[in-house]
């Protein structure tokens, strides 16, 4: 490299390191957030189902109470 190898390889080395860190952190961050979002979205319908079940149970018991009172 004509005695300038240190300057040339340092330039390419710095670029490689900076871009690799940028690519890796970007991919890791995207994967972590999309996993977290998928987990939360998977939980949300379960909570809704549980709420619905609780609501159904409450309605059923409300209906059952007057019937019990009549007996």
């Amino acid at each position: 490299m004509g005695g300038h190898g240190g300057f040339i390889w340092s330039s390419w080395g710095i670029a490689l390191v900076v871009l690799t860190v940028l690519v890796v952190t970007s991919i890791k961050s995207m994967r972590a957030r999309e996993r977290e979002l998928a987990r939360m979205e998977a939980e949300a319908p379960r909570r809704r189902r549980r709420r619905d079940t609780q609501a159904d149970t409450a309605t059923a018991s409300e209906k059952a109470t007057p019937a019990e009172g009549n007996q």
Binding site: S26, M40, E41
Partner: peptide
Amino acid sequence: VLVIIRARAELADRRINALR
């Protein structure tokens, strides 16, 4: 490529915050 990846992360983050 990087704008797409980082935008996906940002959009997912916003959706997480909205759900929270």
